[in-house]
């Protein structure tokens, strides 16, 4: 396994293709995500952006091509063999996908309650820790239906964090939120990328949020957390991947994206 090499890509797609019936979703898509870096997948609706995340998780299987996670090939693993792979991944679903029959505490602690023999007080401590991280510790006893859209996404982020994943996947994390609430989600994503060194894969069509995430960084100064404009080196750590007609149209950093002369990219940015 390539996990011994700390700089090896954590996610690697090699010529991945997928079609549903006659509709081609992905056509020989290849990309890599390096540890501690972020990659934003852009594209219009229905170009298979979310499909990429489902492939990473193994919820879908590609028709051809290879998917490697931490150097291990996962696209042919059985559901059972995938479970340990999924332990390294945290997924924030669109709209949160919280279990609405469970409280916030049970949602956030789900993986530890169900999947481990960790004593309940320890699970509760971890639940409070991650809820504190997203600033929602006073909501621990609520039901998901009592939360606002933004709070639900933050609880979903907390749930994805509970088992300390190495890679976080976000599916349209800010879609449907007002701009102010969206910024709080963006800040969480930046915080996790910069302070916790979590590798991040984001699927979105919200350019404003994607640009904000790429162009800002989180710093801790004398214990206080601040979001400042990113240094050029930091900005280079977040890359963009644009999909069009099931193919990769563009891959590069924010300045490169802005400088692109491709007519579709230009039209998309405007």
């Amino acid at each position: 396994m390539a996990t011994h090499d700390p700089d090896a890509p954590v996610i690697r797609f090699v010529g991945v293709s997928l079609a549903f019936d006659d509709k081609v979703i992905l056509d020989r898509v290849s990309f890599e995500l390096l540890p501690g870096r972020a990659k934003v997948i852009l594209g219009g609706s229905g170009v298979g952006k979310s499909t990429v995340l489902r492939l990473v998780l193994g919820l879908l299987k590609p028709d051809s091509g290879e998917i490697h996670i931490n150097g291990e090939r996962v696209d042919q693993l059985s559901e059972e063999a995938l479970m340990p792979v999924r332990d390294r991944l945290g997924m924030v679903f669109q709209e949160g996908a919280l279990f609405d029959s469970l409280t916030v505490r049970e949602n956030v602690g789900y993986k530890l309650f169900e999947g481990t023999s960790m004593p309940i007080p320890e699970v509760d401590a971890r639940v409070m820790e991650v809820l504190g991280f997203v600033g929602l510790d006073e909501f621990v006893a609520r039901m998901p239906s009592e939360l606002s859209g933004g709070q639900r996404r933050r609880v979903a982020i907390a749930r994805a964090l509970t088992a300390k994943p190495q890679i976080l996947l976000y599916d349209e994390p800010t879609t449907g939120l007002d701009p102010i609430t969206a910024l709080t989600i963006d800040d969480e994503i930046i915080k996790l990328r910069d302070l916790e060194e979590v590798s991040t894969l984001i699927v979105t069509h919200q350019l404003r949020d994607a640009f904000y995430i790429a162009s800002h960084m989180a710093v801790r100064e004398q214990g206080a957390l601040r979001f400042v404009p990113a240094s050029p080196e930091k900005m280079a750590e977040t890359e963009f991947l644009m999909l069009k007609d099931s193919k990769v149209l563009f891959e590069g950093t924010l300045p490169e994206l802005r400088a692109s002369t491709d007519p579709y990219v230009k039209a998309f940015l405007e």
């Binding site: 919820l59 997924m91 996908a97 919280l98």
Partner: peptide
Amino acid sequence: VTEQISALRALGTD
């Protein structure tokens, strides 16, 4: 339709 089933699988539950 709200992806809770996918979320279950992603969290390691069949």
